[in-house]
């Protein structure tokens, strides 16, 4: 069975999803104790499944879209545990767990996934490109989540009503720190990932690749990323402004990801 370990991981991530739903309704004491070991086990099985896929294919590059989804989900989990280790908060899981669950579920259900076709497959460039870009996506998502939670917490502090979910959120400055650091860390990943992508595209298609919608969307996302980073760094934008910019960057990233399905130069072709 091809996706055995991934499916085991999905089962554990399902607990994470339940946790997120319960946390949103304001109660979380019961699940909080078992949730970290559960999703941690999930991540270990997930790692096994990725290692297995690599052993079968003999190439680090995710060969099709389900493998990319799986890898992105894994990078998100790894980032979640990094944040937990550094800040001792599981609150980001409220949004991270559902996304991880959906991505890995979709990956584990994919039967005959479309393949990515490029003359550079197997050269290592693609592996580097995809891994770096996925780390960049994960960073962007974390900054998006923490700025949303920041906004929520700020609203509740201003409205002077702190019941339910909000009473468990980490402090504003902690959330701000998580958001800013993930942006800062993610930026080089994103930039070098894009450069690697350009090298591949240049080699495969020559200079015409630039007019492709996927490439344009990606550049837009990178530009928003820059603005976001710069505005936070220079003017210390937080709260609503940062949340709006983060959302724009996140939407651009989602579109860039979705563009895989209609781009002519960067797509997974059904077999």
């Amino acid at each position: 069975m091809p996706h055995l370990w991934l499916r085991v991981a999905v089962a554990f991530y399902g607990l994470g999803l339940i946790y997120a739903l319960i946390a949103l309704s304001g109660r979380r004491e019961v699940l909080a104790r078992i949730i970290l070991p559960a999703v941690g086990l999930g991540a270990i099985f997930h790692f096994v499944s990725i290692a297995e896929a690599y052993a079968v294919a003999g190439d680090l590059a995710p060969a099709n879209i389900t493998q990319s989804e799986s890898l992105l989900a894994f990078v998100l989990m790894a980032s979640f545990f990094t944040v937990y280790w550094r800040y001792k908060t599981t609150s980001l899981g409220i949004l991270v767990f559902p996304l991880v669950f959906l991505l890995s579920l979709s990956a584990s259900l994919g039967q005959q996934p479309p393949q990515f076709i490029s003359p550079l497959l197997g050269s290592g460039w693609i592996a580097v490109h995809i891994t770096l870009i996925l780390c960049g996506y994960a960073a962007l998502f974390f900054s998006f989540v923490s700025s949303l939670l920041y906004l929520l917490q700020e609203q509740s502090l201003k409205s002077k009503n702190m019941d339910g979910v909000l009473s468990h959120l980490p402090a504003l400055e902690v959330m701000d720190d998580i958001g800013f650091r993930s942006l800062l860390l993610g930026f080089p990943f994103m930039t070098f990932g894009l450069i690697a992508g350009c090298v591949i595209a240049q080699a495969s298609y020559g200079p015409t690749y630039f007019r492709d919608p996927k490439i344009l969307l990606t550049l837009l996302m990178w530009a928003v990323y820059m603005v976001l980073l710069f505005s936070r760094w220079s003017a210390g934008w937080r709260g609503r402004k940062a949340a709006v910019l983060s959302t724009v960057a996140f939407v651009a990233a989602t579109l860039a990801w979705a563009a895989n399905y209609f781009s002519s130069v960067h797509r997974y072709v059904a077999q």
């Binding site: 917490q153 502090l157 702190m162 980490p170 402090a171 504003l172 400055e173 902690v174």
Partner: peptide, 8 residues
């Protein structure tokens, strides 16, 4: 408590 909610 409130200060901690803001500043950690």
């Amino acid at each position: 408590d409130l200060a901690k909610k803001i500043f950690g």
